[in-house]
Design a protein around this nucleic acid. Structure first.
Lengths: 325, 325
DNA sequence: GTCCTTTACGACGTTCGTAATGATG
DNA sequence: CATCATTACGAACGTCGTAAAGGAC
């Protein structure tokens, strides 16, 4: 058994059981991959893939178990390599981040700006997606860290640290009837068409739930993936917008009136996460600290070594978090 | 980075930072180990060992972290190999068990007898020790499974399954004044010299605690590591014996009178454990089932895949256990 | 015929053990 | 001078890529 063989196995699986696709991804010849797979199968005495004639179709049950172990082996070796790189040159490297539009557009710019000043040689990669896509990218190892909201239970092999909490705000154009109202209620809101996020985006569909709990049915005129789109349609008079508090920019959105909706909808938690057992490079720790300054460095490092999420939850239990409202 | 290099690194550390000792253990030449260590250090750009002149003295901090990762890599590859062996020939292999004297002498004989009948080609290795030594052997990977009592919290990277509970029994020679007593009390016991286990052997020193809770002070005449020694001194009239219920053999101990002491001392739990993430061969599962027939096979396999002990505890919460009394 | 995997073959690189050297107490 | 780690060297082994062949659709 060799590390290269395990790497090939994982690449084949991640290429949809295709040897040629894996070879291309690995920048090696295709016969080389084919041969090493055979050598591995011979050594283990196991058929790792179900063969349909000559073509590989899927993993066998035994292959699945070997694959999972192989993935863990490669994660460990990657961590060792990351430690090596960090020791050689802590200023250089790359950091891939999966996150939502809201974070990427409204929260991260200032964090990234100061991060770039501190680490000009680190290449940053922002990957945007839905909560589900972010969870998938993180667990699949396509990104180093993820910043998202809700869906904490969908990430069993990850460590999630609390960043901040936030409420929704309601936005209307200045000429809208609601613009002069003093207190906002769900009943009042339910009489207007609403423009808000696609429901699965921030985990549980808490907005419809909040109305339902009050015995009301909201009139959802339009749902969109991001606050910029929502604001555009609010400006067009299509309806009343409901967006995350972070998405309100005092200058850019001076033409809109916004209301705190903390008393109407449940609070949300934004977290930053990484795969359990991964090694966080120094600049990754600094990035997380820039994003969540209330986290102390040794707390983050404790979380890095934690073996499960519940230990991390107790570590941060009761600690106050920033709140956007 | 190669698997062999990681294997060499781990062997060097486990040989007390000695290259020549590691080479001998690995059955390879000593220059080969030295060279591969150097290659690994060069590739990582890290000094893994503190050098005193030319001799290695201990791991550097970075070396310690690499070593821990390397250990995990090797554990995974060992698990893959174990899967391979199980698929090739599930009847053949070896099973190393760390356990206490009480289990080895009184509980395991019947379990092992039927195991040998079912798996005559599997080599069994029984390692005896104190709770602490058993925990150490299990975490260090010197044994495949451990069977012990108490000290559950000292095994953070292991999965422990409940086997059975047990109470102590009090033993006296037939001519002893207590032999004709009807009901046993702590007060009565405290008036006689006692012969019992060394206290740290079964975790918390529950025997002195039980007396202390009743405001009594026991007269401990002698403590020993195992029930056979205790029984010997009880027969000599040295005092009243207090041993685990399993240690009473109706035939062998027909010359002694024994009393149930369930109402006097707390109940103990005997568990069987393995390192988290290890692969249990089919015969290992069967051994565990022979030891704890109340465990269902799919429960054991669920526990095998569990990522932490608490998940296992909830899996077995409320399930009835056999009790020796 | 096209796509994908496997086999054949020759060149290259790597690793091993033996032997010798260096350093340390 | 005994012990331990490192360096030197030649033989053996393994792996790679190119080229060709074998099946399946």
């Amino acid at each position: 058994m060799k590390l290269a063989q395990l790497r090939y196995l994982v690449a084949i699986v991640e290429s949809g059981s295709s040897i040629s696709a894996a070879a291309e991804k690995l920048h090696v010849s295709q016969p080389g991959v084919s041969r090493q797979l055979k050598v591995l199968e011979d050594e283990l005495g196991l058929e790792l893939f179900v063969r349909d004639g000559r073509a590989l179709t899927r993993l066998t049950p035994a292959g699945q178990r070997v694959f999972e172990r192989a993935q863990r082996v490669l994660r460990e070796t990657q961590a060792i390599r990351a430690m090596s790189l960090d020791a050689r040159d802590p200023e250089r490297g790359s950091l891939s981040i999966a996150t939502t539009h809201t974070q990427a557009r409204y929260v991260l710019p200032s964090v990234i700006e100061s991060f770039r000043k501190r680490y000009p040689k680190v290449k940053l990669h922002l990957q945007q997606g839905t909560s589900e896509q972010i969870a998938e990218m993180l667990t699949a190892g396509q990104v180093d860290i993820a910043i998202s909201t809700g869906a904490r239970e969908r990430l069993p092999h990850c460590i999630l640290l609390p960043c901040y909490e936030w409420h929704r705000r309601v936005i209307v154009p200045k000429q809208h009837p609601l613009a002069r109202s003093k207190t906002l209620t769900l009943a009042k809101l339910s009489t207007y068409p609403l423009v808000t996020y696609v429901f699965n985006m921030t985990g549980p569909a808490s907005l419809p739930d909040a109305f339902a709990a009050a015995g009301l049915e909201p009139d959802i005129a339009l749902t969109a993936r991001d606050a910029d789109v929502i604001k555009t349609y609010v400006r067009l008079g299509l309806g009343v917008g409901v967006v995350a508090a972070m998405a309100i920019d005092p200058r850019e959105d001076a033409d809109l009136v916004s209301f705190d909706a903390a008393h109407l909808f449940p609070r949300h938690l934004t977290w930053v996460g990484f795969r359990r057992g991964s090694f966080l490079r120094r600049y990754s720790l600094d990035f997380i600290q820039g994003l969540a300054p209330h986290l102390e460095r040794n707390q983050i490092q404790k979380a890095e070594r934690a073996t499960d999420q519940s230990a991390v939850d107790t570590l941060f239990a009761g600690a106050p978090l920033p709140i956007y409202a």
